[in-house]
Design a protein around this nucleic acid. Structure first.
Lengths: 335, 335
DNA sequence: GTGAAAGCGCTAACAC
DNA sequence: GTGTTAGCGCTTTCAC
């Protein structure tokens, strides 16, 4: 293992000064430079196997060409696909992506945010665990580092997200169109806009049809919370259908239905939201879940694009209703 | 947007010298430092909202305190959990982790490896797509950057992996103990050690029991390849049980069984390898897959630990047989 | 066209 | 215990 060559050594080898080597390195050579000088430098670089030390460059230059991504759960396929989308857009622009998995822990999220600041990232895509830490967010602004709220809103920040409200409204209308009237809802946490918006859109649609919630419970987007809320509902209320604010919780609902001996969709309708391609597991789910498809990869790309190119206030990507088999279909079964 | 505070400003604010601030920052304060001095520095840091510039630290220190991880597929829960394990061990040691998702593409893997080199990572954990590029690997060695083969071997490099051979042997013995004799196997790709070792262990066990493969096909660890191989086998050979080299392919086998009207485990036994907690999807799989549990998070931690602390030649973590319901059980059903 | 010199922000000897 | 000093490797005026 040999020590790495420095720009000085390259300069000495080529018989020029460090500044000349630097000029070649940074393409300032096109303007005014003897071709043979440039040639000698290039040869020296080749010979000495020289690679510039990035830390030294960043220290002098502006901009690290690095971007941070903070998500709550990398083991959730939803966020893995989001990261893929972000990464592909960033990679195209020559940016390195720092992926931080807060593992649903607020404190870890904070630590990562601090780390990103000290890494001098040029921008951050943040899908916060819950209500974001105002002071921390402010510090990024103070340092001129843009943060784009991704997949969920953060007050005062540009956001790229799904049009949750509209899509949820549409889902509700669909549920009602199937003849369901005793509608129970398992909402997401109140601190996360995704949860709030889905609930709001759903409630709107019910209200304008003169229907109220047969039951309303708040979960936290996990399988367990969906299961728990559904058990409550099934034991205490009369519900014809239970709609969850995401698929994870909807799976929990299905589980509860099974445990309570309610056949889906015959005795109980179930619906979710997200429609992550749960392949190949979904292969074994009969029937397929009624849900709303979120173009998550596209959302990731849009977020990265906004952060790196845009000056915009945010964007929304369109979600699509999936008429699965976990809700009765009047056309098919006569409900 | 105000300029970022430097260590000098913090020092001035606290009425101490930059070195004192540096000492506090790097935990050299425990030894000999007045508590009140430390306190003043801490307050100054707080007040000025100070964060050290990483590039400057890196430049002065020996290493970048950064480590690279290259995996084939972040959307695969198996690797997501691996990353979690790696990350947690690295984080504890103050290391930043650069996660690179090659998306099963050899060329992308190469690009990422080059990038990691120019980022001056102190070490790399590599789960290669297939046979690794010798020349590229060599360059890391020349720069004194250690690479640890993670989850799969790379010739000449230390590896942290599952004791695939032993576990696969054990699985085969279990299968035979259930009375199965027409045993078909869907192997992993020949270029990946994980696949080779699982096949070798399985074959050994069969051989020492005087049994040969009723059929042997090679897949590439994907759902589709498992499905394809199983279709072949079911159409052409008499098989009582089909064992796949990982769960993903085993799911493909189950799918094929369903399509060919073979009831599992009554008409056909099926087994896999990995046992990623497919929660909540697994909730809806009846019966649960017979497989081998791989402590993947632990494997990630072990790999990072070896890379950062160890001088060792590698390590193996122990996998555990899971007696699921996709193989007939003589004790229960009388096979 | 090219070189000399001045730091970027930080850490680690070495003083005292 | 704490301060002073000397760079880490590079880019960038500013001379010539």
């Amino acid at each position: 293992m040999k020590r790495r060559a420095t720009i000085r050594e390259v300069a000495a080898y080529a018989g020029v000064s460090p500044s000349t080597v630097s000029r070649v390195l940074n393409g300032h050579s096109e303007k005014h430079m003897r071709p043979q000088t440039k040639q000698r430098v290039l040869e020296a670089i080749e010979q000495l196997n020289y690679t510039p030390v990035k830390a030294a460059q960043t220290l002098r230059r502006v901009g690290t060409r690095t971007l941070g991504v903070v998500i709550p759960d990398i083991t959730n396929l939803y966020f893995a696909l989001l990261v893929r989308g972000i990464e592909s857009a960033a990679f195209e622009r020559g940016f390195t992506t720092l992926i931080c998995d807060s593992n649903h822990q607020k404190e870890r999220e904070g630590r990562y945010l601090d780390m990103l600041l000290s890494e001098d990232v040029e921008g951050v895509l943040l899908a916060p665990v819950s209500l974001p830490d105002e002071a921390r967010i402010l510090r990024f602004a103070e340092h001129g580092v843009r943060i784009v709220a991704t997949d969920r809103q953060i007050p005062g920040l540009p956001a790229v997200e799904v049009d949750n409200r509209r899509a949820s409204h549409e889902l509700a209308e669909y549920i009602l169109s199937l003849g369901y009237r005793q509608v129970a809802y398992v909402a997401g946490p109140e601190g996360v806009s995704t949860g709030r918006d889905r609930l709001a859109g759903f409630r709107e649609a019910l209200r304008s049809n003169g229907v109220g919630f047969a039951a309303l419970r708040y979960g936290d987007f996990t399988f367990d919370s969906g299961h728990r809320c559904a058990m409550d509902i099934l034991d205490e209320q009369a519900a014809e259908v239970i709609v969850a604010a995401n698929d994870m919780m909807a799976f929990g609902v299905l589980r509860a239905a099974e445990e309570r001996g309610r056949s889906v969709p015959r005795d109980l309708g179930v619906a979710g939201f997200d429609h992550v391609p749960h392949v190949p597991y979904a292969t074994f789910m009969h029937p397929e879940l009624t849900t709303v498809e979120v173009p998550i990869h596209q959302l990731g790309r849009a977020a990265a694009t906004l952060l790196l190119d845009g000056e915009g206030k945010g964007a929304q990507v369109k979600a699509t209703l999936i008429r699965g088999g976990t809700c009765r279909d009047l056309k098919r079964s006569g409900g």
